[in-house]
């Protein structure tokens, strides 16, 4: 069998050896598609307060509501169709996770690679700051920042990025210090190529594999962190319920038998986080030279 020439092609050949990995990737893909298409799929627009009816509040799964359709997963205290709310909630969670992950990756990778490449005082200063921050629990930092910045998507993303960029910086720094000693970097100095070119065309691409693993895991962590903040009431405004807020809204009805308000969003959140983590684990195993046959 001919091995595909591109790194991505080779990556997929080994990736698909793990059934769990493929299924998890499939689940993530389905969730992303569903999240993007939520306005088209969802039976109800859960943000349109004029469409909600208190007549439908806290109905069990299977109830046929005033809108004329079946609430497959029941409704919440405002009479929102839970299925629709979950679809929209996934959309927000995935969006928050991805944006925070990508921004965190960009900032963290820039800091980590600069520190490794420049060296000296800059390196010491940057990496000690990162170490200091890694010793704080991210949730604490995010809580403080959200409390300071206030509510809103941009504020929440800022808090998530600030809480997590340090992980990317650490990883990028570790990868870059190992790579920059290799002969191909010396060869680039010997040509000579510009520093900019060495960093962006040679160093960065070779530091990407571990960063992609961390990015996958950190996206899942961002989603969990956002859900936690929303659960604590510090996340997004009530008019745009994310999964964390749905769980929090249904929490007080748990004991009265209306389990669905909290449980279904909880299950959706767990499926999302677990499958992203499984994808991350699979990529990490694949890139671990000791596990390679």
């Amino acid at each position: 069998m001919a091995t595909p020439a591109t790194p991505l092609g080779r990556f997929w050949i080994t990736y698909k050896e793990s059934k769990v990995g493929v299924v998890a990737l499939g689940v993530v893909a389905v969730i992303l598609v569903v999240a993007i298409l939520a306005p088209l799929i969802a039976p109800q627009d859960p943000y349109d307060l004029s469409r909600l009816s208190l007549m439908d509040a806290r109905r069990a799964p299977g109830h046929i509501g005033t809108g004329g359709y079946t609430h497959l997963l029941g409704t919440d205290a405002q009479g929102r169709d839970l299925l629709s709310a979950i679809l929209y909630g996934l959309r927000i969670s995935a969006q928050m996770g991805l944006v925070a992950g990508i921004v965190g990756l960009s900032i963290g990778a820039t800091l980590g690679i600069s520190a490794a490449y420049i060296g000296g005082r800059t390196e010491a200063l940057l990496m000690r700051t990162v170490d200091l921050q890694l010793s704080f629990p991210p949730i604490l930092l995010a809580l403080v920042l959200v409390a300071l910045l206030g509510q809103g998507k941009a504020q929440l993303i800022t808090a998530l990025v600030a809480a997590q960029y340090a992980y990317f910086a650490r990883t990028a720094y570790g990868a870059a210090t190992a790579e920059r000693r290799k002969d191909y970097i010396e060869a680039a100095y010997g040509t000579p190529l510009s520093r900019r070119r060495i960093v962006f065309r040679h160093l960065l691409p070779n530091c990407m594999p571990p960063l992609i693993v961390v990015a996958t895991v950190q996206i899942a962590n961002s989603i969990a962190l956002e859900a936690t903040l929303s659960f604590l009431g510090l996340g997004l405004p009530v008019t745009e319920p994310s999964l964390g807020m749905l769980i929090s809204n249904g929490f007080k009805y748990m004991m009265s038998g209306r389990y669905w308000i909290s449980v279904y969003p909880g299950i959706a959140l767990i499926i999302l986080i677990v499958s992203i983590n499984l994808v991350g684990d699979r990529i990490r195993d694949q890139l671990n030279p000791r596990l390679r046959r």
């Binding site: 790194p7 002969d183 191909y184 691409p205």
Partner: peptide
């Protein structure tokens, strides 16, 4: 070492 002197991603 020609295994180290060529950028593996190019």
């Amino acid at each position: 070492d020609p295994f180290a002197s060529l950028d593996p991603r190019m």
